[in-house]
Design a protein around this nucleic acid. Structure first.
Lengths: 196, 196
DNA sequence: CCGATGACAGATTTCAATATTTGTCATTCG
DNA sequence: CGAATGACAAATATTGAAATCTGTCATCGG
């Protein structure tokens, strides 16, 4: 596997993801990444100052995909209340499928999440921002009441109230059949709270 | 430290708690517990079949204390909506004080929680039961609307929606000053959802 | 000139030998 | 007689020496 292509940050991130998938977060080393790419580990350090920075970048990429996947639910053509339910359901379904489909990968992901709380905080802000957009649209459409406190706080409250259904820390609960009902109940609670 | 008193399950549980506090969950051994009590470790096994059973009993005792501490908020003389806010605030304050005041003890507690999910599930059921009582009272008082689904599911939804503020998994977030506001926002969201 | 290399020091992890702990039970003690 | 003991086997944890990894940098090669 000689480096036929130029060594880019992008290629390193792909290789790192592969190594993390294959060996898990505890055993994945920079040397492994370099081996997959057919380069010396020194070359990896030209693109990422530390192993931690490399893992952080992978985490960021990973989280970014969720943001992109949820975008359609923010902009979609239905009424805002349906879009909100759709968005929340999509987020839950996405995470649950990931957790159920490949528990080991989810465990790896959770370790990265734990290592990079600053990245996660920024990611949460993005998600809250998307909720805020839906809520603002809902107010324009006359579906949602004007917020008692500032709009951002309400969006954050919706995010926090549904935490149990998107925070990977709770992934173990999602396989239970009761989880579906619990999710529906919380979403309906949230919808009642927002209704004009 | 001769066994001047009779060796009871109660005394063993107290000693186990002390050992867990002092050495943490990883280093606390049955031999340590026996040493504190001045007996042989074989005697401890007369009262608890396994180390796991002993830890489970400690966990149960620990959780029971929360139930007792919250009881007054269920029965208290104020209107039900205020009692609900009081109950939720008490739970959050209790947990937060525990987490902030002695982080190591909290970490120990979290390990026990993780080991004994069956006990935790039963504990959650008790808490949800307390919420359900307040909600039922609130309906009688005309403060809360009749539930769309069954009453138990609504109580569970309130519990789930506030998960971030009582689940020890989130203890790390509670020290942030934003946590207080986030909590207030979610409680106010829940109250709006329930209002008649 | 510029990206890649690999030798290197210090930090971290692995592994296998050693010690401790768990759980049992025949025996002792009151 | 029933509660407590402590010797014991099997499971688990600790330890420290050896191996590997991280991060740097002087040197190489296109």
């Amino acid at each position: 596997m000689a480096a036929t292509e130029t060594l880019t940050a992008e290629r390193i991130l792909e290789a790192t993801e592969e190594v993390l998938r294959r060996y898990g977060p505890a055993k994945a080393t920079v040397v492994d990444v370099a081996r997959v790419l057919g380069v010396s580990h020194g070359s990896v350090y030209r693109h990422f100052r530390t192993k931690a920075a490399l893992r952080e970048a992978v985490t960021e990429r990973w989280l970014e995909r969720t943001i992109v996947a949820l975008r359609p639910y923010v902009d979609g053509g239905q009424p805002a209340d349906e879009r909100l339910t759709g968005w929340l359901t999509a987020l839950f379904t996405l995470k649950r499928r990931k957790a159920g489909g490949d528990p080991e990968l989810m465990a790896t992901f959770q370790v990265l999440i734990g290592e990079n709380s600053a990245v996660v905080d920024r990611h949460e802000d993005h998600l809250v921002e998307q909720i805020a957009e839906i809520l603002a649209a809902g107010r324009t459409e006359g579906l949602f009441a004007a917020p008692e406190r500032d709009a951002k706080a309400t969006a954050r409250a919706v995010f926090d109230a549904t935490d149990r259904f998107h925070n990977p820390a709770h992934a173990a609960d999602w396989s239970s059949p009761a989880a579906e009902d619990a999710f529906t109940a919380v979403v309906s609670l949230v919808q009642r709270a927002l209704r004009a």
